[in-house]
Nucleic acid binder design. Structure first.
Length: 125
DNA sequence: CGCGTGACTCAGG
DNA sequence: TCCTGAGCCACGC
């Protein structure tokens, strides 16, 4: 990226605001940058300048809370490592719980196991 | 102005 | 949960 457009600038700025130990999704960044549907644009920017702008790129994941890079790739491993170094719990395959680690969301301190997770709203309605 | 690329996302089945 | 298809967007050429 030689030139920076408004969108790009916004994206860069926003990513830099993600605090340590928290993560954001491509879509979330796009929305904050004023383009709710430009998640792919965010991807492009990261793809072409993650290191160049010294961004905390490892804090950006897809909407499912998974690392976007291909499993097994060097980048994937590096991202896992960087996240864990910040205290983020990442599964071996690169997934984490957005309910707990997503930026601008009160983390659910409670640990929820897949087996114990409530099924629906029925129990409280 | 159009086309290909990319670490996407959402709704369905 | 996984797989598809369609929609979306910023760039570089």
């Amino acid at each position: 990226l030689k030139k920076t457009t408004d969108f790009t600038r916004q994206v860069i700025k926003i990513i830099r605001q993600i605090p340590e130990g928290r993560v954001a999704t491509y879509g979330q960044i796009a929305k904050l940058a004023g383009r709710p549907n430009a998640s792919r644009g965010v991807v492009w920017i990261l793809h072409s300048s993650s290191e160049t702008f010294s961004l905390p790129w490892h804090r950006v994941l897809n909407s499912k809370g998974q690392i976007g890079l291909p499993k097994g790739s060097a980048g994937h491993r590096r991202q896992c490592q960087l996240l864990r170094a910040e205290g983020v719990e990442v599964t071996p395959d690169g997934r984490l719980d957005l309910d707990i680690f997503q930026w601008k969301k009160k983390s659910a301190v409670k640990k929820k196991t897949a087996a114990a997770r409530p099924r629906g709203p029925t129990m409280f309605s």
